[in-house]
Design a protein around this nucleic acid. Structure first.
Ligand SMILES: [Mn+2]
Ligand SMILES: [Mn+2]
Ligand SMILES: [Zn+2]
Ligand SMILES: [Zn+2]
Lengths: 157, 157
DNA sequence: GGTTTTAATGAAAATGATTTTCAATAAGAA
DNA sequence: TTCTTATTGAAAATCATTTTCATTAAAACC
């Protein structure tokens, strides 16, 4: 009889075990930190939050864990062009909380939006079909981002 | 009477002078290299090509010049997620040769496509209006990229 | 043509996010 | 509990890009 996995939610423990991985405090804390936040956190952001819970966890481990969680499809890694990766939790089904981003090029503020997502998805389908045929590509993912100036930055100029 | 600008196309010389800049051999060669190519060149790629014309030009100058040309709106800087910027010439009017990218996540091959560009533009307009109202954003630019597997990489797996 | 101003340059050093190395630690199977 | 080996932290390494600074050369002005 396998010993009850000490800490952390069962499902997470299970997912990890499933691929021969171990449930550690660092992994729990990192997942918890990103999960709680509704921001787009950098590795450094996550590191700072993690340290508040356990001072002993190193930046290297945070990087490694974020990588792992992205590969497990629990987090998504974003690039808003400021030279550092950012992470956010993928909630529920893939299609469920799908959203795109609106980035202020001035203050780097990022807004999630879902307006016209349906139309974007429809366009995606169309494009996928056409490009698949034309270039023999299998499309797996897409990136749609809008750049501009937020309210405050527009006025400031 | 201002001396005739020695080398290079008049328009380029003029554009530079217009903002208090000087026309140099490095700038001419860099622009020429990116202009001739129909690839998405990294700074290193450009550097190698530039050296074939003039061995004396340094990598630093290539970086500086690429920056300048992007700011002058002659080149566009792309990010395909491989950790280095890539550059391509912007031809003609902005709307004219507008295209989006299809990136193979395996071999990093990049394809330009224009299929459904009209629909994408239409969607952009719609989204711009809605997001502008909802979030008080002024949209200036957008990024639409598809990721997947090219023909060869699909078969190889 | 020559002289002057200062933008542009190259080499080397610095930067900064991320990755690698490696010896020590601890998860979890038995 | 013991044993295997995945995971970890600290320090060093990587690598694209930027900064520094002394030198060079556009081009404005004689
Ligand atoms: Mn988001
Ligand atoms: Mn292109
Ligand atoms: Zn802003
Ligand atoms: Zn490929």
């Amino acid at each position: 009889m396998p010993r009850r996995c000490g800490k952390g939610p069962r499902w997470f423990c299970g997912e990890l075990r499933g691929c021969g991985r171990r449930l550690t405090e660092a992994r729990e804390i990192v997942l918890g930190v990103v999960d709680k936040s509704d921001e787009h956190l950098s590795a450094e952001d996550v590191f700072r939050a993690v340290r508040r819970v356990n001072r002993g966890i190193g930046l290297t481990t945070v990087y490694r864990t974020l990588d792992l969680l992205v590969n497990m499809n629990l987090l998504s890694r974003c690039d808003f062009g400021d030279g550092r990766a950012r992470y956010e939790r993928i909630r529920g089904t893939k299609e469920d909380h799908h959203h795109h981003h609106l980035v202020c090029t001035e203050c780097k503020k990022v807004v999630n939006y879902r307006d016209f997502i349906e139309e974007e998805i429809e366009l995606l389908g169309k494009t996928e079909k056409a490009l698949s045929r034309k270039f023999n590509f299998t499309i797996r993912d897409h990136l749609i981002q809008f750049y501009g100036l937020c309210d405050k930055c527009r006025q400031r100029d």
